[in-house]
Design a protein around this nucleic acid. Sequence first.
DNA 1: CAGAATCCTAATCGATACTG
DNA 2: CAGTATCGATTAGGATTCTG
Lengths: 136, 136
Amino acid sequence: MNDRIAATPPATLAELLRRGNVFAEQCPSREVLKHVTSRWGVLLLVALLAGTQRFSDLRRKVGGISEKMLAQTLQWLEADGFVARIAHPVVPPHVEYSLTPLGIEVAGKVEVLADWIEFNLPAIMAARAARESGPD
Amino acid sequence: MNDRIAATPPATLAELLRRGNVFAEQCPSREVLKHVTSRWGVLLLVALLAGTQRFSDLRRKVGGISEKMLAQTLQWLEADGFVARIAHPVVPPHVEYSLTPLGIEVAGKVEVLADWIEFNLPAIMAARAARESGPD
DNA sequence: CAGAATCCTAATCGATACTG
DNA sequence: CAGTATCGATTAGGATTCTG
């Protein structure tokens, strides 16, 4: 990755940002992060934590997702090595999606974030309300 | 929140997805998640972990961000209670942004995710390469 | 059933210019 | 300096149709 900032030794994204470098946008990780944190990426990853599922299962489970977005997001995640796709060559096509070991890990991180937000929603909404009415 | 699924007792997003409900899209947490995982939201949160900073500092530090997006994203995060904005009423305007306690927490989760990706990029790229050439 | 292809709309983003 | 306003370009995303 980042050829031009390769000199910086042990740099996580966080490190880079703290230092002031931050042209990490030309780094592949930006792309991966985008897939993972995309609207449907988050939901699909968490949904797939429940185990192997078929295309239509996911479509039903995730809800408002269109076929197009489902297919596209699955392809992103597959290309990133997070999702494994297994197509059974039977007459009515049967394809199963599951998380790879790598995918299980990211999905875990995403789930932590999503759950934190869900859990802290009351506090968040409270802070929002307090700001609106309170300290004008 | 979610009036219609209020019956479900202790439901995290993950729980909802695993069960098959998942119409969490009409839930405020979807919005918060969107702000937090947005392209610039991620970067700003992590950047702000370094401490209080001014508008132009953030603009410089985050890099490719436009003024518009910086202002907008900061407003989102402020409205969600993650960022505190302090404007000093001096002649050349001086405004400082920092994370609230709540913001420090989410930023931490986001940082974990971002760092995981950064750290595992080699493995991700390897998986990608292997799939392209290998098991046709 | 799984998905590719097409078309189309609405939202997003970025650059520029302007204001207090 | 710290924004807001506006506009054009890009993109995400949805609905529909078609195929193996």
